[in-house]
Structures are given as C-alpha cells and as structure tokens.
C-alpha cells in the first residue's frame, strides 16, 4: 500500500473504523478463499483412491526352507520374508536391547507361534536403499549404500540408519500363508 490513497481518504467524511472494518473483512475473506482454493492443488499430490486400495498382498511361504528368504513386492517396495534358522533366532533373542539405537525385542518384531518368520520392508531406514541379506557384521542385513548393519532381527546395530527395518502390518492366514497390509 502506498501513500497515494491516503490523500484521498482524508477527504472521506466517513468514520475510519467502519471503513477499516470493511477493508479488513474483504481482505480476510479473500485470504481465506485463496487458502481454500489452494488445497485441491496440494491434495491432488497425495495417493489417489486406487493407490490406497492396493494396500495388501498375500504371500505363500510354504516353499521357504529355514535359512532361506524371499522378496515380494508390496506398495511398490520389496518386503523380505525370511525363515530364520534356530541359530539366528537365538542370536536375535540374546541381544541386550538397552544398548540398541532403536530398542525392540525380537518378540516385538515377530508373531507369537511363528518366531522363525521375519517379515520386514526391505528398505534401509537411512536413505531408502535395499540392504543385502545374510551380510554385515551381525549376520543379518547390510546396506551397501552407506554401510548400515542390521542384525538377524533386522535391528540397526551399526552405521548411519536411525531405525530398525520396518515391520509392516501382516497376519498369518494359515501356517503357510501371510497377508501383508
């Protein structure tokens, strides 16, 4: 706003308050309207309804022998499904979680009765690379991008990643089928 209108407004005989109220109300309403108008332009970037609907994947795990793992696609990302050996499970359970960067027990990361099965989103929590299996200093996973080491329960042990590998929502439909998502 420049000084130009003021010379004119001074000659206006009307009360200042009423005029100011009118200008403020108009400007405020314009601002509110603009804010509402912007929202569809932003919200359209969020996942569309069909993308949100594609949220679950069913996996047959009967063919995975102990010590083997498979990679399945879920929401465009790899999910590791690993049938852990007894040694791996024992190692995972033996860890003192008070020393971990992201403290979680092995039980919190598996389903009761299916402790040998580890289901995790195979995306490094550092910057999104896919870690390599059966690698790293803790016998779990190792991310080649920036050197994050995960243990046999997929917990971060060393390197830059801040969190454990994410365990998605999943359930056992039967002993050899799981539903992810």
């Amino acid at each position: 706003m420049s000084s130009n209108p003021s010379t004119v407004e001074q000659s206006d005989e009307n009360g200042t308050t009423r005029r100011d109220f009118l200008y403020i109300a108009t400007t405020a309403m314009g601002a509110v309207g603009a804010a509402y108008a912007v929202w569809p332009f932003i919200h359209q970037m969020n996942p569309s309804k069909d993308t949100l609907a594609l949220a679950s994947a069913e996996v047959d795990i009967s063919a995975i022998a102990p010590g083997q793992s498979i990679k399945v696609m879920w929401r465009g990302k790899p999910v590791f499904v690993r049938n852990r050996t007894e040694k791996e499970v024992a190692e995972a359970k033996a860890v003192d979680i008070s020393n971990l960067r992201d403290p979680q027990t092995d039980a919190e990361r598996t389903k009761p009765g299916h402790e040998q099965w580890l289901v995790m989103v195979g995306v490094c929590t550092h910057l999104g690379c896919i870690p390599l299996g059966e690698a790293g200093e803790f016998g779990g996973w190792f991310c080649p991008c920036h050197g994050s080491h995960y243990d046999t329960a997929g917990r971060i042990r060393k390197g830059p990643a801040p969190l454990n590998l994410e365990v998605p929502d999943y359930q056992f439909i039967s002993d050899d089928r799981i539903l992810i998502g």
């Binding site: 209108p5 004119v8 206006d12 009307n14 009118l22 109300a25 108009t26 309403m29 314009g30 309207g33």
Partner: peptide, 20 residues
C-alpha cells in the same frame, strides 16, 4: 462464500471510488 465476498468487494469498491 462468493456471494458474501462479492457484496464485500462491491462495498469496498464503492467506498474507494466515492471521492473520485
């Protein structure tokens, strides 16, 4: 919304133009 807004715009415009 627009009906109210247009009334306000009309009043604002009229008041601004009155001296002219």
């Amino acid at each position: 919304f627009m009906s109210i807004f247009v009334v306000l715009l009309y009043l604002t415009n009229r008041r601004i133009w009155r001296p002219i």
